[in-house]
């Protein structure tokens, strides 16, 4: 993709990729990191099924399920924001961005509550292999949600002077693409670490 994309002007007009190519490279790198993480998780879990089952039995499902819904709601808000900017409905679009951040904050609060409980119970990265994966994956993802919110906040801030509108959507689409990636990773993480027992 690296090389050819530069010569696009010569290519016939084809499908449009929303957002910036640089962000897609970043997203690919992030997905690769998480992908390798999940793969290694699978290998370790195969080797120590009892340990992982025992660890998972300490994980409540209610809060993570709520968190899943919150992130998906955030994603929906990002879609709405892009659509509204495309129609030049500036105020409504910015409201959608704000709402996405509210949902994101909700996710972060729930997650913090869950993680705090684990830390109080004396669980650390060095406890055992299951908790090593649990903490590194969830904290790493948590920080991605934070980063996603920073990006959305930046878009919200820059949108105040009408920078985004019909035909000028790259910035919003780029932010939305990142948010969807964070959402996608959570769905896999939720299924793999919390649900699949």
């Amino acid at each position: 993709m690296n090389g050819q994309s530069l010569e696009l002007t010569a290519a016939p007009p084809a499908r449009h990729i929303p957002g910036d190519l640089a962000m897609w490279c970043f997203i690919l790198a992030e997905l690769a990191v998480f992908g390798v993480f999940f793969l290694v998780y699978g290998v370790y879990r195969r080797q120590q099924p009892a340990l992982f089952a025992e660890g998972q039995s300490h994980l409540a499902l209610l809060l993570p399920t709520l968190n899943t819904l919150l992130l998906i709601a955030g994603s929906a808000c990002m879609v709405a924001a892009v659509k509204r900017f495309a129609l030049d409905r500036q105020a409504a679009a910015r409201r959608a961005l704000l709402l996405a951040m509210v949902f994101g904050s909700g996710f972060l609060l729930c997650k913090l509550y869950e993680l705090a409980g684990k830390f109080m119970a004396g669980i650390s990265l060095s406890s055992n292999d299951f908790w090593m994966f649990y903490l590194s994956l969830t904290v790493f993802h948590f920080l991605h949600v934070v980063l996603g919110m920073v990006i959305v906040a930046a878009v919200w801030w820059m949108a105040r002077d009408g920078r985004y509108g019909p035909g000028r959507l790259d910035g919003v689409e780029t932010a939305a693409a990142y948010w969807h990636m964070v959402d996608l990773v959570w769905l896999v993480l939720f299924a793999l670490v919390y649900v699949a027992r």
């Binding site: 994309s5 910036d20 640089a22 790259d170």
Partner: peptide, 16 residues
């Protein structure tokens, strides 16, 4: 496929 690719986004990704 077409996509925009701007220096400012690449720079922001680098710093961020």
């Amino acid at each position: 496929m077409s996509a925009s690719f701007t220096k400012s986004t690449a720079r922001n990704i680098f710093y961020g």
